[in-house]
Design a protein around this nucleic acid. Structure first.
Lengths: 324, 324
DNA sequence: CTGAAAGCGCTTACAG
DNA sequence: CTGAAAGCGCTTACAG
């Protein structure tokens, strides 16, 4: 009753050999058309579904191309937008996506990926894989691409954070601010460091008289409270937030205190437009699309020479000015 | 060079039979501890990774539990939040999630799911599976759960849209509105119909003097433009939007026209809080969590009696009042 | 405690 | 055009 039907069952019912059934099912091999028709008909009647494991075992995973996508435990809005855009491209290439939500040690996940003969691995944001995991993938000739993360020894696609910081700085300069604050997260990421240093350098270079301070908070969600406090300082006329999410808290604080402070965020996620937050846009559409495209080409390309670090791309963010 | 190492290779190197290697690798069987140690050591040195296909073929998919999640082509914010919450629960159960972004006909996807011995299928929103696909899954004893969609013959978990409409209506009544508009999408879904009818009935029952109109637009994104036009009618003092996304357009229009119209959305997605949009909340956390929990229990439970429609859950939305 | 053998369901040369 | 046979890599009774 619960036994799955196999090509053997179909062969029996059709009075042919199993190889004939296999050929009929796969479509391409040459054979008598009416035998094929009959076999197809029978297999349909019997609700036959091929056993992917068996097929994979023999074809060594050429059947369906599946790409693994590792996302951080706490995925922010920004990541979801990227995922969505990766998906929409991959779909056109008939590539499946398997999403893994990983925390400590990806090890078992990597094993799963290799064992399942997946065609490639996309790692979104932090943390990176362990060196041993990277090596394992390399050994198995599975391309790895870091998305939104920079690593010279690997394939990656990311945005230029230093340049993004510069863009923000230029805006504060243009608006003739005198005293600006950079608000970030205590647990500093490379991204934050780069954005802030790009910001600092740009200011120092063109308007060294502007006073720049840095304040780090523990959680992004604390941004509203802290911003409100910070706005007590009436001489403060600009805040550069590490992320738009933090910027939202800033906007609320600004509205409530009727402050005229200049706010700039980073990312341009979905709500930013509605919140009218000026921000440094990192187009998730471009990033997702390019990441998927890069991965697809690596998967398809039989030349594996560039598998480890042949694909490295840095995209430019852009300043989006809004009135809030 | 590129040949994958198998248990046979390990067996040779270790000077034992392949069954011994298998036992050592799987951990549970009883055997001499030092042989196991040695084999494990060797397999590590050789960078061995088990072939999941082979294992699946013999164990019939008991190895890793993977659940398929089908999402609509155009996934909105609301869905991403659900996915995120589904993920976070499944992770605790050590269940993997494979996300499929489907459009016309899921057929091939369903075959893939069955062939891969996946443990269950979650379908988010519309469209539902074809009857033939549902039957196929049933035949293969793969539980199916519709999320955010109602279907008496199947397992499902969803929110009560009629009640949601009532909640919204009650708010307009309480605020003593005289003339309200329901703004929806031309391409009516069951959800919209239920929300609006719940709304209408509630008004008719308690405040029949309130004038209720309905206006359907083609795209959610047109909401801003249309709202602005609609607000020319100064007697209009309330708009009930089918979704928060549409409500955002309304808020912009309201701000620009300095109108005092009462706006209510539906969903309570991420930006709604920042936009200060009063809305009918459908907690994605509860929905995602409950969906994942329900699926996990179906997957684990060896009693398949209730596989088809034994799990049916309707959650209550709640009104969230904000000042905008 | 361990090895030889059978078998999971499929594909693909190899002979007809 | 089609069938018998080998083999993909693994697990699991079955004998030692």
């Amino acid at each position: 009753l619960n036994k799955k039907v196999t090509i053997k069952d179909i062969a029996e019912k059709a009075g042919v050999g199993i190889s004939t059934v296999s050929r009929a099912l796969n479509g391409y091999a040459i054979m008598k058309e009416d035998t094929r028709e009959r076999i197809l008909q029978i297999s349909r009647e019997m609700n036959y579904v091929p056993n992917a494991a068996a097929r994979m075992l023999v074809t060594r995973g050429t059947a369906t191309t599946t790409i693994a996508l590792l996302i951080p435990v706490v995925a922010h809005q920004f990541f979801f937008e990227i995922i969505s855009n990766i998906q929409s491209y991959l779909k056109t290439q008939d590539i499946h996506l398997m999403v893994f939500n990983t925390d400590r040690g990806h090890e078992s996940v990597i094993h799963h990926i290799i064992g399942m003969h997946m065609a490639g691995v996309l790692v979104l944001g932090d943390p990176p894989l362990l060196p041993s995991e990277e090596r394992l993938l390399e050994l198995h000739r599975i391309p790895l691409l870091y998305v939104d993360r920079h690593d010279d020894n690997c394939n990656y696609i990311t945005f230029d954070n230093t340049y993004g910081g510069q863009l923000a700085a230029q805006y504060f300069i243009k608006k003739e601010c005198k005293k600006v604050l950079m608000m970030g997260i205590t647990d500093r990421t490379t991204q934050q460091t780069e954005r802030f240093s790009g910001f600092r350098v740009e200011i120092a270079k063109h308007s060294p008289h502007i006073q720049v301070n840095e304040l780090c908070i523990n959680q992004e969600r604390e941004s509203y409270e802290i911003s409100k406090t910070v706005l007590n300082d009436k001489s403060l006329d600009g805040i550069f937030y590490f992320t738009d999410f933090m910027g939202f808290g800033g906007i609320q604080a600004k509205l409530e205190t009727s402050s005229k402070v200049l706010l700039v965020g980073y990312d341009d996620i979905f709500p930013s437009k509605f919140m009218k937050l000026t921000t440094v846009r990192q187009s998730t559409k471009v990033l997702g699309h390019e990441a998927a495209k890069g991965m697809a080409s690596m998967v398809i390309d039989p030349n594996f020479a560039n598998i480890k670090n042949g694909f490295q791309k840095i995209l430019d963010p852009e300043l989006v000015i809004r009135q809030n």
